[in-house]
């Protein structure tokens, strides 16, 4: 029986990963349908797929979380082109690493909201750096303070949603991994 359950658990890990990738991509897709808001830098999105990444970083491990990040970026590449890919992966990887290390080491002090805010800021910062390298112009950092404020707000939003759907995600994990 031991061997059975172990094999079962290992076999379904990739499946869980795939499901989470699909969910992250779906969230990304729905976000892209949101219209532009006038006072925001164009292209800025709430980053709801971050919820999935955070969950993976907390409950499945860094490799899984990075795979999900890569999946999101590849989706961006397939649908929106090379530039979108670079922007997605630069922000995504930084944010993913931040999530993993914070969840592991920040003990009980930093709540989900705080971690979510930091992930959001990392994501934005990664994207700003990528944008600066691509255009070769330091003027892209002009967006920085506005993006930071926006990042705080979306971080709070994402953190709240994360806390709310966490039980559901746990349930999903238990169900798939049996």
């Amino acid at each position: 029986m031991n061997k059975d359950s172990k094999t079962t658990a290992r076999n379904f890990r990739p499946a869980l990963c795939a499901v989470l990738c699909a969910q992250a991509i779906a969230l990304n897709f729905f976000e892209s349908l949101i219209p532009e808001l006038p006072f925001l830098p164009p292209g800025a999105k709430p980053g709801l797929s971050n919820i999935i990444t955070m969950f993976a970083a907390a409950s499945l491990g860094l490799p899984q979380a990075l795979i999900i990040t890569a999946a999101k970026s590849l989706f961006a590449f397939a649908t929106r082109g090379f530039t979108a890919f670079i922007m997605s992966i630069s922000g995504g990887v930084l944010s993913c690493l931040a999530a993993y290390f914070l969840l592991k080491f920040a003990g009980r002090k930093l709540g989900y909201i705080g971690i979510s805010v930091i992930c959001s800021l990392c994501h934005n910062f990664g994207q700003l750096c990528a944008g600066c390298v691509i255009t070769g112009s330091r003027m892209t950092f002009y967006y920085a303070p506005f993006l930071a404020l926006f990042g705080v707000i979306t971080g709070i939003l994402t953190g709240l949603i994360f806390a709310a759907v966490l039980p559901a995600l746990e349930k999903q994990k238990k169900y798939i991994l049996r």
Binding site: S59, G111, Y112, G159
Partner: peptide
């Protein structure tokens, strides 16, 4: 998994970045 959603530290962080 952790329990806390929002605490003192979170608040300080948000305040600092916003300022």
């Amino acid at each position: 998994m952790k329990n806390r959603v929002f605490g003192k530290v979170d608040l300080i962080l948000i305040a600092a970045v916003t300022v």
